[in-house]
């Protein structure tokens, strides 16, 4: 069973961060929520592993 990787696994953090902010340029809050949602759906499909996705959902939930 795969587990969620929470160690650093990227480079170019500032570039990616800028792209993420740029995703919301000119959007209303409602549109932003939809954009975030589409992004999550695309990524979880790419990940494809239910255990990993379930673990990420658990960690993302407010504590």
């Amino acid at each position: 069973m795969a587990s969620l990787n929470t160690a650093p696994n990227l480079s170019g953090h500032d570039d990616i961060y800028e792209r993420l902010i740029g995703l919301h340029d000119g959007l209303s809050e409602g549109e932003s929520l939809q954009a975030w949602s589409r992004l999550v759906l695309l990524l979880i499909n790419h990940i494809g592993d239910r255990d990993v996705i379930d673990e990420a959902i658990r960690l993302a939930a407010p504590r």
Binding site: T6, H13, Y17, L20, I21, S32, L59
Partner: peptide, 26 residues
């Protein structure tokens, strides 16, 4: 942060950075 989404992203980074190494470089 200049927008609600940007503020939420920033706060999410700080929240996750407490416990998870992957978020710290952000």
């Amino acid at each position: 942060p200049k927008s609600t989404a940007s503020q939420a992203l920033r706060d999410a980074v700080l929240q996750l950075a407490q416990d998870h190494a992957f978020a710290r470089p952000f």
